Amino acid sequence: MEVRTIKVFTTVDNINLHTQVVDMSMTYGQQFGPTYLDGADVTKIKPHNSHEGKTFYVLPNDDTLRVEAFEYYHTTDPSFLGRYMSALNHTKKWKYPQVNGLTSIKWADNNCYLATALLTLQQIELKFNPPALQDAYYRARAGEAANFCALILAYCNKTVGELGDVRETMSYLFQHANLDSCKRVLNVVCKTCGQQQTTLKGVEAVMYMGTLSYEQFKKGVQIPCTCGKQATKYLVQQESPFVMMSAPPAQYELKHGTFTCASEYTGNYQCGHYKHITSKETLYCIDGALLTKSSEYKGPITDVFYKENSYTTTIK
């Protein structure tokens, strides 16, 4: 009895394709271990004539594949690729409408935090270190965002349907971005203890939790000093293409032309909904596939993004 075979390709990165001759009487799992086709788990399936010449994702289970996976995804987590594939199996079914010149995501599976993050990423200057993220990001900007969303979920250790947080998501993504040249110098002034300067680099240099107003941050924000008295913390120097200011959701007025974009969060910790506000020729609110415009805006804002380049204080 002759062994019926077909020729397929296996890959971990969709760049390096490895030619395989597979036995049609055995499952993919018996031949390769966990195997995925377009995100779908085909591990328990036997090869079919229609699979001839198709590319299958496999887990990096030998040295060659491990090197290829690390170079593309910059992670050695053995569960990463499987999590990416199972997320992709959902995100490829989502709709990605162009809204006001940006790629958004039609609401499904509690994905409003991903839509808000995706919209924000198209408006701030950011370059990702893992080629996987950078490639998928370019495709997302062009309207094909399924891979990018699935990668975000995998890097953030999230599953489809789980509630997510924009600030946490951005923080994970910033860790995989090139923020080497970003720098922030802060000064804390206390009447009792004097003053202390701190220099922050990388992710810490672009994120701040405690106030939404970048102007206020430049002037000074009140913080408790270690001595128990009130101290003032203010920005001395900022070198970065953008800054992200966050605070627990509270009524906040966004003035046209003073910011790049913002995240609105309605609801409580267990259950809520994100919308995205962007400042173009007027203010726009993007909620999944829905767009509304207004000249002014007041609502429960939790993150505001500002364009920056270089700032030095005039406070002496």
Rank of each mutant, 00 (worst) to 15 (best):
V3G: 12
V3T: 11
I6W: 07
K7C: 10
K7L: 12
T10D: 02
V12C: 07
V12N: 12
N14L: 07
L17G: 06
L17A: 07
T19L: 11
Q20E: 11
V21P: 11
V21M: 14
V22E: 00
V22D: 05
M26G: 11
M26N: 12
Y28G: 03
Y28E: 00
L37A: 13
L37H: 14
D41L: 10
D41K: 07
T43C: 10
K46S: 10
P47H: 02
H48G: 14
S50G: 12
H51Q: 11
H51C: 08
K54N: 14
T55L: 07
F56K: 04
Y57T: 12
Y57E: 05
V58R: 08
L59E: 14
L59Y: 14
P60L: 05
E71D: 15
T75C: 09
T75N: 14
T76E: 09
D77E: 13
D77L: 05
P78N: 13
F80G: 04
F80R: 03
R83V: 05
R83L: 09
Y84I: 05
A87L: 07
A87D: 01
L88S: 03
H90T: 12
K92F: 06
K95G: 12
V99H: 12
V99M: 15
N100F: 07
L102W: 03
S104E: 03
S104I: 06
K106G: 15
W107R: 06
D109E: 10
N111W: 02
Y113R: 05
L114E: 04
T116Q: 07
L119N: 02
Q122A: 02
Q123Y: 04
I124Y: 05
I124W: 00
E125H: 08
L126A: 05
K127H: 11
F128K: 03
N129M: 08
P131W: 04
Q134G: 06
Y138S: 12
Y138A: 12
R139A: 14
R141L: 10
R141Q: 10
A142E: 15
A145F: 02
A146W: 08
N147V: 10
F148G: 02
F148E: 00
F148H: 03
C149I: 09
A150L: 02
I152C: 07
L153I: 07
C156D: 00
C156N: 06
K158D: 04
T159F: 07
G161M: 06
L163A: 13
G164A: 05
M170W: 03
S171W: 15
S171A: 12
Y172Q: 10
Y172G: 07
L173Y: 01
H176F: 12
N178F: 05
N178T: 06
L179H: 05
K183C: 08
R184K: 02
V185I: 13
V185M: 06
L186P: 02
N187Y: 06
C190K: 01
C190Q: 03
C190A: 00
K191N: 12
T192A: 11
T192Y: 10
G194F: 03
G194A: 04
G194M: 05
Q195K: 14
Q196P: 02
Q197D: 06
T198W: 12
L200D: 11
V203Q: 08
V203N: 06
E204I: 01
Y208N: 08
Y208M: 09
M209I: 15
M209R: 15
T211Y: 03
S213K: 03
Q216H: 13
F217T: 05
F217Q: 02
K218R: 07
K218G: 02
Q222D: 15
C225V: 01
T226S: 14
C227G: 01
C227R: 02
Q230V: 13
Q230C: 05
T232C: 07
K233P: 01
L235K: 00
L235G: 00
Q237L: 14
P241K: 12
F242Y: 00
M244F: 02
M244E: 00
M245N: 00
M245A: 03
A247K: 05
A247G: 07
A247H: 06
P248S: 14
P248C: 09
Q251F: 15
L254I: 04
L254S: 00
K255Y: 08
T258L: 07
T260L: 15
A262K: 00
A262P: 00
S263W: 01
E264Q: 08
N268E: 11
N268F: 10
Q270A: 14
C271N: 08
H276M: 08
I277A: 00
S279F: 01
E281L: 02
Y284H: 10
Y284S: 10
C285H: 09
I286M: 06
G288E: 00
A289C: 07
A289D: 14
L291A: 13
K293W: 11
S295V: 07
S295L: 11
Y297R: 02
K298F: 09
Y311L: 10
T313W: 10
T313L: 15
I315A: 15
I315P: 15
K316H: 15
